[in-house]
Simulated scan of single mutants.
Amino acid sequence: MKIGNIELGTMPLFLAPMEDVTYKSFRYMCKKFGADVMYTEFVSSEALIRDVKKTHQKMHLFDFDRPVAIQIYGHDIQSMVNAAKVAEEARPDFIDINYGCPMKKIVAKGAGAGMLQDLVKMQRMTAEIVKAVSLPVTAKTRLGWDENSKVITAAAERLQDAGVAALAIHGRTRKQLYTGEADWSLIAEVKNNPRITIPIIGNGDINGPEKAAEFLRQSGVDALMIGRGAIGRPWIFREVKNYLQTGEVLPPPTVVEIAQNMLDQLHMSIEWKDNVRSGILMMRRHFAKYFPGLPNFRPHKIKLLQATEMEDIEQIMSEIIEHYGDLRVDYTNVSLK
């Protein structure tokens, strides 16, 4: 598979762009365990052209990231064009347009998945961005606005006509948010559309290697994208790759292995933020996901979520390791919700 001239090999695995999740330390962990393509958190076009410091920080890229995309979103065509030009200066490998975010504050302005209600504007915006930059441009979107307007086939054709180099599709509508099940049959419909020649990347509900293989069998997509299934489980990329190559399921990590990886991610978060408290706060979403299904774990989880000092977290982790030792964590029934 290729994006522009970027060779990604056969069946690359993408880490989905996620707000407040796909920052430096989490991207590093996913790359360490086999993710092939990274995305930044999504970047507001309006904030970018206003030179908001926090927004520019999201675009800081690192050698381990590559290949990596900066994802932008917005509702105004000229602002998006300008934002794409600014993003290009940060030297990503490609630029991605967010046409899939379902958050109310985003879609209320017609951005993100809100653009699925105006495919003509979506196509025009995409074409203008493609013309404005020299890097490949890709897009990520959903099946449609709601059950009665699953316009993904038409949207895919329009985006291809506008010049995107690849398209990622999340198998839900905007109205679904993250409820119900992802519909991979419509992703397959796009992939098998004879008009579509660009790579199609499938996304939605990949929570383990066997599910990944089943979705791949159903759809025939060119690549898989993993989002929420990687939070607290960055080694899912290694598990999926191994299963697709060998048909064998790797044993889940032990509590000791998980604890060490979580601490590695925490230390990198603190280093990146240059502030202990800020680094710990960044990690709280991950603390809640790293040890699913352990018996009587709730008291440890509460302490982790309340800790504000590194010494306290290290003490809690020592207690967890002492209590659970080499127990392996079973992710079989872990919910993505």
Rank of each mutant, 00 (worst) to 15 (best):
V130W: 05
G293Y: 07
M103G: 11
F62L: 03
Q71P: 03
P194F: 03
D76Q: 15
R277I: 14
G220E: 03
D36Y: 01
I6C: 03
G229M: 12
A156G: 06
D330R: 04
N242L: 09
E248L: 14
D312V: 08
F215R: 04
N148L: 10
A16G: 14
S25Q: 09
R233E: 05
I316C: 02
K85P: 08
G232V: 09
L224Q: 07
F26R: 04
G4V: 06
P199A: 06
H60Y: 09
E248P: 01
H267F: 12
A139V: 07
L281I: 10
T179A: 02
N275P: 07
I226M: 00
L250Q: 14
A288R: 11
T332A: 15
M29W: 06
P234V: 14
A87T: 07
K54W: 11
Y331K: 04
R142H: 07
H267A: 05
M80N: 14
R66Q: 05
N275D: 12
I196Q: 03
D118C: 12
A108Y: 11
I201D: 00
M310I: 11
D118H: 04
E189P: 10
D20R: 15
Q176C: 10
G74D: 01
L159S: 11
K337N: 13
V221K: 00
R217C: 01
L327T: 12
I97L: 15
L263E: 00
I77T: 05
A108E: 12
A182Q: 01
K85E: 06
P67I: 05
P194R: 11
L244T: 06
L304C: 12
P12C: 01
E19R: 10
L61R: 06
F215I: 13
K54C: 09
N296A: 03
K191L: 01
A108L: 09
N296G: 02
V86E: 14
Y23N: 02
K301R: 15
R328F: 03
P252E: 02
R228V: 07
E319H: 13
T153Y: 06
I95P: 02
T179F: 09
E319C: 00
V21P: 00
G112K: 10
G208R: 07
R228M: 01
E157C: 06
M282A: 07
R233C: 15
M283I: 01
S149V: 05
V276Y: 05
A166T: 14
G9W: 14
L224F: 12
Y28V: 04
L266R: 13
R91G: 08
Q117I: 00
I187Y: 01
S335L: 09
P102T: 09
K24G: 00
D146V: 09
Q78W: 08
A154V: 08
D161L: 06
T179L: 09
D51M: 13
E46A: 05
M103A: 15
P12T: 13
V52Y: 13
M283T: 05
E322L: 07
I320H: 14
S79T: 07
V130N: 02
T22A: 02
Q260T: 10
